[in-house]
Design a binder for these strands. Structure first.
Lengths: 223, 223, 223, 223
DNA sequence: CATGAATGAGTCTTCATTCAT
DNA sequence: CATGAATGAAGACTCATTCAT
């Protein structure tokens, strides 16, 4: 199909094929190791998991773990960032679809509880539990990730309020709202998805928590 | 009931005097060690603190630490329980004073931010950060302490609603409210008192967070 | 004998006895471990010796090694300093006895070959072989120890020359003489005591090497 | 003998040309890797240098290092032998020129300090520092190389003495002279070229050290 | 021949815990 | 009851070496 055949760096040539396959395999290994760490950190906790266990589960040698990751901490931080990225993506995706009403917040909350918490309880364990109480470096990463999330929520809030014709408010107000919402859903996630094996009624929780959140926002804006 | 029990060092024999002195000293040592652990856990983190460091700060030997506490974990759990107890006390005290209106919640929030967070940032570090991401045993304690807090809030809420003539609501509603409130203030505490050195305007945060909380509660009750 | 008995910090009291015994035992352990390291470093080389082997030979646990020494490097550096100290002592002792003639140098050389090399071949192995080619920290220590030795020789030389009525010489000359003498005996020690199992005739080597050294010094002073 | 062997790239067929080019490239690679090892061993020390670092500096893969050298030790030993060879060449070249007087020794010393030490401080680091305190195999090589050097000096000395009409001396005397001279210049090299960044006055050191050496030799021969 | 990912044995080091004094 | 030296299991991490591609 591609007339420019015959060059070795061509994506159709044999060399390129084997090269790209090796590259794919490398990525796969990286992901396998990361996935193993995710599973074990969520299951047994960060400190209770040894590199050897991760290597065993990923079916590689301990040396390989250190080929792909600087050290044990790097595994945790990478996971935290990955999960943080997914969270922000969820937030951003929902906002894009939206018509700039507070319904976006409702949708985000639903998506968070249904998809994020429902499908990935390990993510909650790592992002909201294991990331806490570790080293200074991890704590700093945690702070930064939480800050990014709060900023995202804050910005979304500011944009929507403006769109809804709500007068400009004191800057500290959106921040407090963002922080509150984050805390709200953090604890709901931990309470219902980590400490209770399986939440009976996700829809119910979603409905009510949204009601709480929107009531809180409205009341705060009234003042 | 027994008036002679009011003071522990009350006694009339020489032996008893020295015995009571020893008892006092023992208690003091216990507290000194616990205080040292509190300081260091909050400052450097649980895993970054060694028993030797705690012993040094408390000016005792490592062996003494093990006389007063079963092991390192015991120190953390004792601290968690102590702080959990203070939190519940704060909650209970405020409720006792109250006239069974939602103003109690307002007062509790103010007390939490002003007194608890303002005067004891170490407690936040230990209760909301160091208690997470440790061993299974610690996690179980954390779950139980958080449950107790949620239950306290839930009960307070139920009692007040009843008093206010608000019809009996679905049981899952008070739970969600309690969980939400806990999460709200947990993250506010961490955000403003742990990650920002000193919150500029505690009163402002208190005012607004209460507005958010009450707005949330009201909106949830409307449905 | 001492009338001031009865005080617990008295060297004759029971408490003091057990305390001093424990102190003695502690020192003994320190020395046992150091001696084990000395033996093994000299026999198998620094890098070929593991902490576990040292602990085994000293009949202690690995942890104990780390109670008495910061790390493996600390063991080597301590040994180097110890041996360096012995060497300087040998030099100083011989000079004290001396009548400020170059015969001191002769005596020192004899003492070095007879006592130092003859009785402690391990010291040569550690001071002249194992201390080289290790880490930056060790190399720095080596440099400093060698500098001290050169300075000692230099000073001795200057003092003796002055005493002997030899006119003041360019400062770089004593230095070169000191460096030369050190090199001379370093290699003689390695050649005859490390690489040849047992030197046939120590006296002969001593006699001749002294002749070489004094001839060198004299010739240098003539210019 | 075969004139067509003078140049390695001499050939008359296409295959041979490319073959000879490949041969040249191979040699070049070998040298590049060796040079990289030399630089890094001298700079950071043998143990502080990893094969990967050598490969990186030589711009080849780690695998290639193992194609050209059996193992890491082989790199060090090859360097030691190479440097030892250069040293013996310097010695031999100077002796060939000479008229069998002790002036040869003077010339050798000057050449050693000026050319060897002045132009190749890395060689001193490797030959006199890194070669020590490593494995048994390396130590054995070191012993052999030093023996060869001592033998060279010894032979030169014997030949010159004979030529100068100096009566046959006890065999152990030339050996001690050779060992002494080696030690002398070893330490001078380390002291002035390794531990002092740049010797102020190489000529001065050369002059004086020769004076010392010759004085030593003469004095020893008198007895 | 070159590559560089994979290996895994080997070691240092830490530190919670114990126990003789 | 206090002490603090001793323990030793546990684990992170390194890096020389190999080998499939």
């Amino acid at each position: 199909m591609d007339p420019s055949m015959g060059r070795s760096n061509d994506s159709n040539s044999l060399l390129s094929r084997s090269a790209s396959r090796r590259l794919r395999e490398k990525e796969q290994r990286y992901n396998t190791i990361l996935k193993a760490a995710e599973t074990l950190f969520a299951q047994k906790g960060y400190h209770q998991t040894s590199i050897e266990e991760i290597a065993d589960l990923a079916e590689v040698s301990t040396g390989s773990v250190y080929f792909y990751f600087k050290n044990k901490e790097d595994l945790l931080i990478t996971l935290m960032q990955e999960i943080g990225h997914q969270l922000r993506k969820l937030l951003g995706d929902e906002l894009k679809k939206a018509d700039f009403s507070f319904d976006s917040f409702k949708n985000i909350a639903f998506a968070f509880l249904r998809e994020f918490c429902g499908n990935h309880p390990e993510w909650i364990a790592i992002f909201f539990r294991e990331s806490a109480g570790q080293s200074l470096e991890v704590e700093e990463q945690r702070r930064q990730l939480f800050s990014k999330l709060t900023d995202d929520i804050k910005e979304a809030f500011v944009k929507i309020s403006r769109e809804q014709g709500i007068g400009p408010v004191d800057d500290s107000c959106p921040e407090l709202i963002a922080v509150s919402i984050l805390g709200l859903y953090e604890r709901i996630a931990c309470h219902y998805f980590l400490w209770q094996d399986q939440p009976k009624d996700v829809e119910d929780i979603a409905q009510r928590s949204v009601s709480f959140m929107l009531g809180g926002i409205n009341n705060l804006l009234k003042d």
